[in-house]
């Protein structure tokens, strides 16, 4: 089943790219890489004991953060239409997402812990002291973009875009940092306590891009994205994405 879905995604990407290659003057192939940072609200979970804010103890859950980020690499084709004012872009992408609870920031680990409800059996209840839980997932995606080039082509051009991608999960795993490393034996059990990563999700963004180099020569594009919304294919989120920003760099070869 997974193989069928993979094949159909791959075929549709090839069709999209080959469709773009019919006009010999206005097409290019590009390889891009990007990253989006999206913060989530304070997690209120029925498996996390509420906490006291470090400075405002009246707000019990604010000392925990939910963070989400994703990075990706893609191969895309672009065809420009309407006097090269509009570019239609599609291709194939691999996206890696990382959702975490307990981290203080994207790149630093927390020395503090929270209490996680592991299980309740009759009158016995087990909590674990956990520093952070990170859910990693890999997705195969189809990106779709419309770029608008309002200015005359030059060696440095500004353009605007609206884009998105549709993602299907290939694999996932959960990594837990325990306050007491002896509790590592419960790592698999925690995977069953927390919400599963989304099977499908779609993200949409608005952006501004900078095209460096002439249109008919190899060059690079730099784009800044503002994620607008994410449609998730799951009943519950481990981290609920709220707002963020992203950046994408791509190298293009006209042909």
């Amino acid at each position: 089943m997974k193989l069928k879905i993979l094949l159909s995604v791959f075929l549709s990407a090839i069709v999209a790219v080959s469709g773009l290659s019919q006009d010999t003057k206005t097409r290019c192939l590009s390889v891009d890489a990007g990253i989006d940072f999206i913060s989530g609200g304070p997690p209120e979970k029925d498996y996390i004991r509420a906490d006291r804010g470090q400075f405002f103890s009246d707000f019990p859950t604010t000392s925990l953060r939910g963070l989400f980020y994703r990075n990706y690499v893609s191969i895309k084709g672009e065809k420009t239409v309407l006097n090269n004012k509009v570019g239609l872009v599609s291709g194939i992408r691999y996206t890696r997402t990382e959702s975490s609870i307990g981290k203080e920031s994207y790149w630093s680990n927390s020395s503090d812990f929270f209490y996680l409800l592991l299980r309740q059996e009759e009158t016995r209840t087990d909590y674990l002291k956990v520093n952070e839980i990170t859910q990693l997932a890999g997705y195969l995606a189809i990106p779709l973009e419309i770029r608008i080039y309002p200015y005359r082509p030059r060696a440095f051009n500004v353009y605007y875009k609206i884009g998105g991608d549709v993602n299907y999960r290939l694999h996932s795993r959960t990594r837990t940092v325990f306050f007491n490393s002896d509790m590592k034996i419960f790592e698999d059990e925690i995977e069953n306590v927390i919400e599963k990563p989304w099977v499908f999700y779609s993200s949409f963004h608005l952006g501004v891009g900078f095209r460096i180099g002439m249109v008919d020569k190899p060059g690079v594009n730099l784009e800044i994205h503002i994620p607008v919304t994410m449609i998730r294919g799951g009943k519950q989120d481990f981290v609920t994405p709220e707002a963020g920003t992203g950046i994408q760099l791509n190298a293009r070869i006209p042909f």
């Binding site: 309740q120 009158t123 209840t125 002291k129 509790m183």
Partner: peptide
């Protein structure tokens, strides 16, 4: 509900 609480597998208190 009365729960005998274990934290990191160590008996801690009753809730």
């Amino acid at each position: 509900r009365v729960q005998l609480l274990y934290v990191d597998s160590k008996q801690t208190e009753v809730i």
